[in-house]
């Protein structure tokens, strides 16, 4: 028994991992909590060219590793249940897990909020060598934009080309959005997902309302 204890002590964790969520009795407040989107959705128009929804309280994890290290790629795949996309600007979705290529050595993983710690722990359990796993769930939120005029709103907002010939379903880019930034992924023909920073989310929500006014904006809760 004492040997086992000894063993545990010598492999003191080289990184600090903490489950950051309280128990279910405490409700988290997403970055757009103050906007009371449920009421807006209830009272607002039901048809329009653009539909907005905040995918609130999702789990977001940044993963950094060496994409040329096959062992690390394998370990990440084992932890996530899906292989990391190594083609620039691509993403993969499998079940509840979606992974976005951010940079040659960086991926953004999105999972349901309550799964974040589990996935984070799994990554730590599988990975070895030089890597970084950071839970950033509190720092970001996800906007879903869809509808017939979604491309028109995006063209007012971002400088990247969103034409389907160069921005097919599944493509993901980090870029500017209005005077802030966003990680934009095309999740469907007329559906885009924006991962945005918490502190800018109110500005971006205002911007999207303004830019979609001429098309009519439907808010979904």
């Amino acid at each position: 028994m004492s040997d086992v204890k000894q063993e545990a002590a010598t492999v003191a964790p080289t990184v600090a991992v903490m489950d950051q969520l309280p128990d279910a009795s405490i409700q988290g407040q997403s970055p757009l909590f103050h906007a009371d989107l449920a009421t807006v959705a209830k009272n607002g128009p039901k048809t329009g060219g653009v539909t907005f929804k905040e995918e609130a309280l999702m789990g977001q994890i940044t993963l950094r590793l060496n994409a040329e290290n096959a062992e690390q790629l394998k370990a990440a795949e084992k932890a996530l249940g899906v292989a990391l996309p190594t083609q620039p600007l691509t993403s993969v979705v499998k079940g509840e897990v979606s992974v976005r290529w951010m940079s040659p050595d960086e991926w953004l993983i999105v999972v349901p909020g309550l799964k974040a710690f589990e996935v984070e722990s799994a990554l730590h359990a599988e990975l070895s060598g030089h890597y970084q796993v950071v839970n950033i769930s509190g720092g970001w939120t996800i906007f879903k934009l869809s509808g017939a005029n979604v491309v028109d709103v995006l063209k007012k907002s971002t400088i990247v080309d969103v034409h389907p010939s160069v921005f097919p379903v599944g493509k993901v880019v980090s870029t500017t959005f209005a005077k802030s930034s966003a990680i934009i992924r095309r999740s469907g023909e007329s559906e885009f997902e924006l991962v945005v920073r918490r502190s800018f989310s109110d500005y971006l929500w205002l911007w999207i309302q303004d830019a979609s006014r001429e098309f009519g904006l439907v808010v979904e809760a």
């Binding site: 407040q29 209005a178 005077k179 502190s199 800018f200 500005y203 303004d210 830019a211």
Partner: peptide, 18 residues
């Protein structure tokens, strides 16, 4: 363009802004 009034410059808020 739209970069005027409330949208002139982004305002960043903390979680306790409300």
């Amino acid at each position: 363009g739209r970069d005027c009034g409330a949208l002139f410059d982004p305002e960043r808020y903390s979680a306790m802004h409300k």
